[in-house]
């Protein structure tokens, strides 16, 4: 599904190498987790994959179902099936959440040559999905993320994911800032989307999310590289002992 080979990335206007050769393969139907110390490049990886400005790819490749991602505009990557749940969702004053969701869903459909969703159908689906995530009608009417609490923003990300039904979902610290119940809601939302044709890359610092979303593979990222890959037990090791042991082991 998602195939990253030797990806090297530096900042566009600074001589700072952030990703130093990332290799990662997420198969359809699988959940991969990435853990790693602050500043190791996890968010950068997710931004570069989704096409954010300000980074320069200096080597390697990234593709989704064999299609080169790095050449595409962000919206084309989205239409191709890539989704990023942001670590820091953006507030957009003046744009209603509902308008935003509908514009996004229909823009993707249009880009894929599919029929647009009617207003009535859209409303029905969005209400149902929102209810599952305990997002009330008022939140749907408000401007995108404006005045949302941290947890509400994260649930709103999952709502977008549920509406867009992407093939490859990247979740960047979606668990941070969530209370125990919200964490469960978000995990349920993710689990509901788990299917054979869909891949997940879950970036997190904590084992707790992985209790709810059982990963198939766990990667440890440090200083711009994946330094270790293992099963769910790797997350438990990090939870118990921190990164020191793992870092020492590969050094």
């Amino acid at each position: 599904m998602l195939s990253i080979k030797g990806l090297k990335v530096k900042l566009e206007d600074e001589d700072k190498q952030i990703l130093k050769g990332v290799d990662l393969e997420v198969e359809a139907g699988k959940v991969h987790a990435i853990m790693g110390p602050n500043g190791s490049g996890k968010s950068t990886l997710s931004y570069v994959l989704s096409g954010k400005d300000g980074y320069e790819v200096t080597g390697g490749s990234a593709s989704l179902e064999g299609i080169d991602l790095l050449d595409m505009e962000p919206e084309e990557r989205a239409a191709a099936g890539l989704f990023l749940a942001f670590q820091y969702p953006v507030e957009i004053p003046g744009v209603g959440n509902m308008t935003f969701l509908r514009t996004a869903v229909n823009a993707q459909r249009k880009a894929r040559g599919e029929e647009e969703m009617s207003a009535a159908e859209f409303l029905k689906v969005v209400r149902a999905r929102a209810k599952e995530l305990k997002i009330d009608a008022a939140m749907l009417k408000r401007p995108v993320n404006v005045g949302f609490s941290g947890g509400e923003k994260k649930r709103n990300e999952i709502l977008q994911m549920a509406m867009l039904e992407p093939k490859m979902c990247i979740l960047d610290e979606t668990d941070s800032g969530l209370d125990v119940d919200a964490m469960k809601l978000v995990a349920d939302g993710v689990n509901a989307l788990r299917s054979e044709g869909r891949g997940f890359l879950v970036i997190t610092h904590y084992q707790r999310l992985l209790d709810h979303i059982q990963p198939d593979v766990v990667h440890i990222m440090a200083d711009g590289r994946i330094i270790k890959t293992g099963g769910p037990e790797l997350a438990i090791e990090v939870e118990n002992n921190g990164y020191a042991g793992i870092l020492a082991e590969v050094a």
Partner: peptide
């Protein structure tokens, strides 16, 4: 720019 990227990342053309 952040809002623009956020919208694009959801599939809305620039």
């Amino acid at each position: 720019e952040d809002a623009l990227f956020y919208l694009q990342s959801r599939g809305v053309p620039a």
